[in-house]
Design a protein around this nucleic acid. Structure first.
Lengths: 236, 236
DNA sequence: TGTATTCATATTGTATACAAGGTGGTCAAT
DNA sequence: ATTGACCACCTTGTATACAATATGAATACA
């Protein structure tokens, strides 16, 4: 249901999505119509339709008579995210293993190749977006609209968080990143073999890894409370 | 994010939702802007925004340059529905038991009372809509936006299917209906007690009941294939 | 008779003008 | 000096005119 490809409207739609995912547009920041109109060369009517659609997909929130804002990420968001993600990701991977077409598997391999090379030489943005793309393809494979909407929303926030933990200057465990890449490879193998149980459990493993990275970001080791429990043993 | 309450725009939004849920607007039927404009006394700009929003929530689908249609229900839809529903419903009920506020529990009791009386003396529409309302409240209780979007979409189709199996002329097992009502009562009790395991398993039971009703609708007993397996034992 | 092409019509998409509401600042009164 | 109301400006919401695209019928051709 995205606007027709190639049009100015679609350009605006894609650009906004990307800008939000990459944190170029910050969570909670306000979006003024006139600014965006001049930026994308659209009049207000189609621009508003783009915002309406982005709102429907969870990228932005609309406030009556007070314009649009990039949807924000609070610690509440993060908690909700932690609860829903393992459930949805494992269900998606199970269905992906059941339903993937050969063309989709081929797409996924390309996406994984892009992710791998982004881990080696790419920017933070490259890493976050190629990872995002990988998981969206698994969503397409699962081919279940009811779960897809949930995955889409999870990926919005997952990718925004990833923009932080893929940051190279944190130097946080390059081992973790290559482990994530290896898990992607395993997922492809499980999907190609139609092994749904393995695919589902890989999703959980992959999620656990992400969760650890997120915890590192939310609660950096350097700031551990002297008498508190270790962050890595924090109860999920 | 619904339009501001009380406005003509909101009226149109609510009326369209209701008309789609009750099958007054048939799945797949086309929605012409000018017709709706005169019907709701809106100009095309705000009406199109209503359609955009309904599209974002899965009630309608927009086709570029070819207008909007009520989102349709095919056998593919139904299969996807069967796969996703138990997962999402049980997760929602578990979270509802964890998070429900007293005010929400009170709302739920009211909704259940309305459902019960609709089963006794109400129309098909009353039954379907009060049941819908009950489950949407459990979704609010769960308070997880990632899962909520999925529940919302499931309920659109669940309610539309229910418009068929709540039909009194089918006389299909009045016992089943009162059983559904009793399960609602049990759910309320589990939520009020904060018993999340029980709430989750009740969701699965409740779903199994719904599924049987849906199967009866999709594959009526009178048309069983002579050599086929029994519909009630159809593998999920 | 069947098929392709073209044009008239209807419907959707976009721009712009106007209306309504919200924000922030100034000024007055206590 | 602080607080309140008022007013101007700015942003969003709606209506309408115009442009672009699809649809279907009529016609010409094979």
């Amino acid at each position: 249901m995205p606007p027709t490809r190639g049009s100015a409207k679609n350009d605006a739609y894609e650009a906004m999505k990307r800008a939000i995912l990459t944190l170029e547009r910050k969570p909670g920041s306000s979006l003024e119509e006139s600014e965006l109109c001049t930026a994308f060369g659209l009049s207000r009517t189609p621009l508003r339709e783009v915002l309406q659609q982005l709102a429907g997909e969870g990228y932005v929130v609309l406030q009556a008579n007070r314009g649009a804002r990039v949807s924000d990420m609070t610690h509440y968001t993060l908690r909700d995210f932690f609860l829903a993600a393992p459930l949805v990701y494992s269900a998606i991977m199970r269905l992906a293993a059941q339903n993937a077409t050969q063309a989709q598997i081929s797409d996924l391999k390309w996406a994984q190749e892009a992710f791998r090379s982004a881990l080696e030489g790419g920017s933070v943005t490259d890493r976050a977006l190629t990872n995002d793309r990988f998981h969206r393809i698994t969503g397409e494979m699962a081919d279940n609209p009811y779960l897809m909407v949930s995955l889409d929303r999870l990926l919005i926030d997952h990718t925004r968080i990833a923009m932080t933990f893929f940051r190279p200057n944190t130097k946080s465990d390059p081992e973790r990143l290559s482990q994530a890449s290896r898990q992607h490879d395993d997922m492809i193998a499980a999907i190609e073999a139609g092994d749904e149980d393995r695919a589902a459990s890989l999703a959980l493993e992959h999620w656990a890894l992400s969760r650890d990275q997120i915890e590192l970001f939310v609660m950096p080791r350097g700031l551990e409370a002297p008498l508190g429990q270790l962050p890595t043993q924090k109860s999920a």
